[in-house]
């Protein structure tokens, strides 16, 4: 349905996404994890045709059989909301503060689906009910500042669902929310994806959230996809040195107790820090920080190694191990 083939996003300062390949089919629930700056948002925004104007795109982005790599704004505007929709991290600022939330949700219904005002209102009401907003009739008339963070995120989800998208991208949808609210939002997203046969691309720092929301996972570092496979397998038996570092010694992140603030701990720190785009090594992006680095790593980019029927990782050391 939507597919990236060797898709890259480059800036003058460096490459934010390097030859990423990823296919999302109807009903998929895929997670993306990786440290800050690893290119998760860049990948997501590319799927919306919303990569920064300064970016240079190459490779292929195929949506329903159409190559969208060079598509202009107009081409993308016809697909956003109807094919691909996206929700963002910050529900506090994601909605126009001067518009009633009902009007905001009715906007795409009227514009894209050509519904009358009354029809759009009825649909908005049904959407509010579907995403679990209590007393939806009154809520339609309220302004964003009158709603709690969780309520607002539900409005944002209702807005994203308005035109029945085939893929919903959620970029850290729960990071700004309380732990309990976050859990309910995750369960809501999973339920919606299943009921609507909608694909879900779930980006998060919170491994427990990703474990709960997704079936497959993609691990990113420095603009590269470094490991992928079924979520449960990757999180319990990580194979790529970076994924192992990301998970630390934790065998099962889902069982990890919450911290004093009620949130699950963020990703454990790996020694060193993510280099800036200019300073990324040209070979394996992780070389320099990798505990098992080989001489070949810094200069040569590792290809994909099949670890099992469903798992892939890009690492020189792993390749030697598997082929040995």
């Amino acid at each position: 349905m939507i597919e990236l083939q060797d898709f890259s996003v480059s800036f003058k300062s460096g490459t934010a996404l390097r030859q990423a390949s990823l296919a999302i089919r109807p009903g998929d629930r895929t997670g993306i994890v990786g440290e800050s700056g690893s290119g998760k948002t860049m990948l997501a925004m590319s799927l919306m045709g919303m990569a920064p104007a300064a970016a240079d795109l190459s490779g292929k982005l195929v949506l329903d059989g159409r190559d969208m790599t060079g598509a202009d704004d107009r081409g993308w505007e016809a697909l956003r909301a109807r094919k691909v929709a996206m929700i963002f991290q910050e529900p506090m600022t994601a909605l126009n503060p001067l518009r009633r939330v009902g009007d905001t949700v009715m906007d795409p219904l009227r514009l894209h689906l050509g519904l009358s005002k009354a029809e759009a209102r009825a649909r908005a009401l049904a959407l509010f009910e579907e995403v679990g907003i209590p007393s939806p009739v009154e809520r339609l008339r309220q302004f964003p500042h009158e709603l709690s963070g969780g309520q607002r995120q539900r409005v944002v989800i209702a807005l994203a669902l308005a035109c029945d998208p085939e893929l919903l991208i959620a970029d850290e949808p729960t990071t700004a929310l309380d732990a309990n609210v976050a859990l309910r939002i995750i369960d809501l997203l999973v339920r919606l994806a299943e009921e609507r046969q909608m694909a879900l691309l779930f980006i998060s720092h919170d491994l427990a959230a990703v474990a709960r929301a997704t079936r497959d996972i993609v691990v990113m570092y420095g603009g590269d996809i470094v490991e992928r496979g079924p979520t449960a397998e990757v999180l319990t038996t990580p194979r790529h040195p970076y994924t192992q570092g990301l998970l630390g010694a934790r065998p099962n992140p889902v069982a990890e107790p919450r911290g004093a603030d009620g949130k699950r701990p963020r990703l454990p720190t790996i020694p060193g820090s993510v280099p800036t785009l200019q300073d990324l090594p040209s070979g394996c992006r992780f070389s320099g920080r990798c505990p098992v680095e080989l001489p070949v790593c810094a200069g040569t980019r590792p290809g994909s190694t099949l670890i099992s029927a469903t798992r892939l990782a890009n690492c020189h050391a792993l390749k030697q191990e598997v082929s040995a």
Binding site: M48, R80, E90, L95, N96, R99, V156, C163
Partner: peptide, 21 residues
């Protein structure tokens, strides 16, 4: 601001976003 990004993600043209949001 973020809500302009939301509006873009909802498939609104830049011109419409300019006047409405």
């Amino acid at each position: 601001q973020d809500f302009v990004r939301t509006a873009r993600a909802t498939g609104f043209s830049r011109r419409r976003i300019l006047w409405r949001h």
